[in-house]
Write a protein that binds this DNA or RNA. Structure first.
Lengths: 313, 313
DNA sequence: TTGAAAGCGCTAACAG
DNA sequence: CTGTTAGCGCTTTCAA
């Protein structure tokens, strides 16, 4: 009667609903799950070391949650209790969770395989290493956006401030730079012997100092994160450059920090709203957990502020 | 047999466990919940507008999760589907959730009462308005820490850069300043006609400019957030002051931003780890949902960096 | 110490 | 259109 069965008269329906409401009736999720052998719960592994990217990750989680909600699903934050020896997959099986979204700053490929081997669909955001089913910003497109903009401003000596050289994301961005440089016949200005695995301010500062020593007359810098970009800005300022007059700097991420820094940072915005939504949609229609989707790439966009300017004549 | 019943021989126990593991046995949470009429799930309302404090909130969520995990509880992110007309409390009743932790940048007092009226225990983090059961940083102690430190550096003309004047937290901090000023016989330096409800950079900037116009010779500023403090720093720098030589500035929150700003920001750190843990403990032992606990105040600590210095002679 | 049975709240299938 | 029934996987109680 309550399940929206078609063959019920309208007033009867209303009557029943009214009484149900009045009695405070709420269906018991456990009983439903028990008989249906499934539950309307999506699993989330959210293990984010408290860095800056938190902002980005929590925006994605929120978007994911909203989409889940719109589809009648609840989110469960999965715990991996090492003490009680209960693993993620057990929690999932126990709660009849068949899809898991991984948002993590650590490498979760082991967990991922474990889950998949137990018949659970998995989608990983920005995986450290290439992963079976991943969703991420289209790094090639995003980096291109950044570089093209600098190019159109008239800059030709465009240096690249890389992030991690070993992660999936880091490599993709570097590749995009190489490709761009080749296509436009520019001199590559990048210090490949340096790795900036933590995308930190200090790494950005140091690597920029290195770039400044190695190459003279840098017009512009394309950075792999906003924090790296800020490090670059400090290094440039400490070296006597005035920004953006002398050098243009582009960040990556569009963290809130961009707006409170001087000069305000031009950057590439990752579309967290769309990523979270798409992630949820993808998981919900992924019927075979072992299937390998092609990486889901979400387009990024440019946010222009005060750290970029046309090349001075 | 599997439930840890005492009267079973050890080797029998091991034997059973081995076979159970081999068979991939995982207990069905729904069935357990159905028969026990309860579930090992804590509810979380996590609705955080994407501001800076995200960092703080997600650290607390993480700490809360870890403590929940240690106690064998899972976390469920509650959704309020307005479209399907399902409210938080229905979700809770449906899933036999009896405790909810609210982390929200919005006022949730309506939700709070609704939940409580349905027999669900609620604890709210940093509520906008005074709330029945709340957990928060001990704002009086925290503000005192900040002010005392500035005082001990030799500063006597200590201005106060308030945040919101209408929220529970904002008022508590202002009260602490007033109290301190009275006790130490200082001149109050605060612009009460200005409200800085969004704790934003611009508000910090503008209000500081106002303070500078109103009072001459400010020694130090105690701010209600790190972002406000940064606004103050910009205002001071734009007015020709060199920091921290001329003016000392203290923030509040200890966001990551403190470390990447110049000068690095001295601030008051809210103990997110302890707050999250305590919140979970409190909820788990709160047997009567209607009981009104006294506010749980968690001590803050000082983090000293480069934005504070002794008063120049 | 072991076995059997009832029942938690619901859905689905089938008979009226 | 309505009513009845079996059974989802587990715990608990009672009987052997």
């Amino acid at each position: 009667v309550l399940n929206g069965y078609a063959g019920v008269s309208k007033d009867m329906h209303e009557k029943v609903m009214a009484i149900a409401n009045q009695m405070g009736y709420v269906p018991n999720a456990a009983a439903i799950s028990l008989v249906k052998k499934k539950s309307a719960i999506l699993g989330v592994i959210y293990e984010v070391s408290s860095g800056f990217s938190n902002l980005y990750f929590s925006a994605i989680l929120e978007a994911f949650r909203l989409e889940a909600e719109a589809n009648g699903y609840m989110l469960m934050l999965l715990s991996q209790s090492t003490e009680h020896q209960i693993e993620y997959w057990k929690h999932c099986l126990s709660h009849k969770i068949t899809s898991v979204f991984i948002i993590s700053t650590r490498d979760q490929s082991v967990v991922e395989n474990e889950l998949r081997n137990h018949g659970i669909s998995v989608l990983t955001l920005d995986p450290i290493h290439q992963s079976a089913n991943l969703i991420a910003t289209d790094n090639a497109q995003a980096m291109n956006l950044s570089l093209s903009y600098l190019y159109h401003l008239g800059h030709r000596k465009i240096a690249f401030l890389q992030g991690s050289l070993t992660t999936y994301v880091g490599k993709a961005r570097l590749d995009a730079y190489r490709e761009f440089v080749k296509q436009h016949n520019l001199t590559p200005m990048v210090l490949l012997e340096r790795d900036n695995p933590s995308y930190s301010l200090q790494e950005g500062y140091d690597t920029t100092m290195g770039l400044l020593k190695q190459f003279d007359a840098i017009d512009a810098m394309a950075c792999c994160s906003d924090v790296l970009a800020l490090g670059a800005i400090y290094a440039l300022q400490d070296s006597g450059y005035v920004l953006p007059r002398d050098v243009s700097v582009m960040g990556f991420d569009d963290l809130r920090l961009c707006e409170i820094v001087r000069p305000k940072l031009s950057t590439v915005r990752q579309n967290s709203r769309l990523i979270g939504k798409t992630a949820c949609e993808t998981l919900l229609k992924m019927d075979d957990p072992t299937s390998v989707l092609k990486p889901i790439q979400v387009e990024a966009s440019l946010v222009l502020r005060d750290s970029t300017a046309p090349k001075k004549p």
